[in-house]
């Protein structure tokens, strides 16, 4: 039982790291710079649902470290870790408070919004510039769209894992 759990954590970390590296090469045409899909959030959500909050934080932390080591720089690490941890914290709190009542898609949208808020906070802190918050509208719109897409994907993956009798270890 314990080995299976460790295996699942390792699988999630490697999947999330690969997704966040692959994501860098996906360029959305005509999108505002800084707008990203947030594919690694699929894994974050799955680990919150299937592994519990402690290991979800572990997955996010190690994913950021791995993705930075393979192809990143200190600044991108700062951006991804702040956004990632803040959105994970909010999603964990929502999942634990409204366990039965909130849908995966809605949690994913709120997570995406918090991720963008966290990154914008780091950017304005680095730049000493409050004017950067004028990017807020475009980031909120993109967060709702990408959060919805990621949520739908997560729901499908979760259903398919349930159909294959992958147990929930939380």
């Amino acid at each position: 039982m314990k080995t299976k759990r460790i295996l699942l954590i390792a699988l999630f970390i490697s999947l999330a790291a690969i997704l966040s590296i692959v994501e860098r090469s996906i360029i959305i045409p005509q999108a505002h710079p800084g707008v990203k899909l947030g594919l690694a959030n699929v894994i974050t959500l799955l680990s919150i649902i299937m592994l519990g909050y402690k290991d979800a934080f572990l997955v996010v932390l190690l994913r950021c470290v791995l993705a930075t080591l393979i192809g990143g720089n200190p600044v991108s690490f700062l951006f991804s870790i702040t956004g990632g941890l803040f959105s994970t914290l909010v999603m964990v709190l929502l999942w634990r408070t409204f366990n039965q009542h909130i849908s995966i898609v809605n949690i994913s949208i709120i997570g995406a919004i918090c991720h963008n808020l966290g990154q914008l906070f780091v950017a304005s802190w680095l730049a000493h510039e409050l004017l950067l918050y004028s990017l807020l509208p475009i980031l909120m719109i993109s967060a709702v769209i990408t959060g919805y897409a990621v949520g739908v994907v997560t729901k499908r993956v979760y259903k398919s894992l349930q159909a294959r009798q992958v147990k929930v270890y939380s």
Binding site: I102, S103, N106, I109, I110, I113, L136, P137, I138, V144
Partner: peptide
């Protein structure tokens, strides 16, 4: 979930 969806639509409109 219903209220949340309305909230998101409102956020998009406001943005």
């Amino acid at each position: 979930n219903y209220y949340l969806t309305i909230g998101f639509l409102g956020l998009v409109l406001l943005s």
